[in-house]
Amino acid sequence: MTGVIRGTLAACLIAIASLAHGADPICKGTLYLTLDTGNMRHAEAIAQILGKHQVKATFFVAQEKTLRGDMALDPSWAEFWRARVAEGHAFGSHTWRHGSFRKDDTGGKVNYRLPDGSQTQLDVEQICTELKKPDIRFAELTGRKLDPLWRAPGGRTTPLTLKAAEACGYRHVGWAPAGFLGDELPSEISPNEILLKRALANLKGGDILMAHLGIWSRKDPFAPMLDPLIGSLKSKGFCFATIPTQ
């Protein structure tokens, strides 16, 4: 099931739980901004934007290579993550190796494509390990465990991965169709102005938004657009909250 569909199905649960997770009852609607690690190029700038607008986001963390040459969950990033914890954001697993769950086989395993293009197979226990390793490392870096949430890279899941994740305590979080902010699309085809206009026109209360802390391929980064996007959405009466954990 795709991330978009899963995000749509989750909207009802989120709406019910929103008041208990920071949503303002006078809001026109509540939006849920989520940020995946990516290459971390704009991590500090995005953190400043969130602070400026007093918005809490849900970060999905993986051990991804960063623009600095290290990895997103290396000790060199501990200060960054501790600061986000102190600010009250939420955090979920984005898998350890940031691979893609492709297809379940008949032997109770899932085909898992790694970022270098190689493939391996994971059984239920190994799927759980893939989700728990970021949780363990995040706690080592910050003293805080992840929330019981996860997002599959690319939103790609399979029946086996969803079942295994739920068995070891993680609920999958996708995103709404309008919540796909497009920061991983080619900027030549999808310029920032178009992406910003589309999001402002189509987002509605209960939607989960998805962007990254840095994308390798996009020439004109979308990350700075989060400033006018959040500001415009708040001026339209929307509030922001973190993803409910139940």
Rank of each mutant, 00 (worst) to 15 (best):
R68F: 08
W96L: 08
H94L: 08
P115S: 11
Q119R: 13
D123G: 10
K132C: 06
W81I: 10
W77E: 08
Q63G: 03
D105Q: 14
S76A: 14
T106G: 10
A90T: 12
T95V: 01
R82M: 10
F80N: 13
T106C: 07
P115R: 14
G108Y: 03
G107M: 10
T58I: 07
T120R: 13
M71Y: 12
T58R: 03
D104I: 14
E87H: 15
L67Y: 11
D123F: 00
L122Y: 02
G69C: 04
A86M: 13
F80G: 14
S93P: 15
K56Y: 09
R68T: 14
D74S: 13
P115F: 09
G108S: 05
T66W: 03
R84L: 13
H94A: 02
N111G: 12
E79L: 06
R82D: 09
R84E: 12
P75V: 12
V124E: 13
E87N: 14
I127T: 12
K65R: 15
R84W: 04
K132T: 06
K56T: 08
H98N: 02
F59D: 05
H94D: 00
F91C: 10
F59G: 09
E130P: 03
M71A: 05
E64S: 03
S100Q: 11
P75H: 10
E130C: 05
H94T: 05
M71F: 08
Q126H: 00
G51T: 05
Y112C: 08
G92V: 02
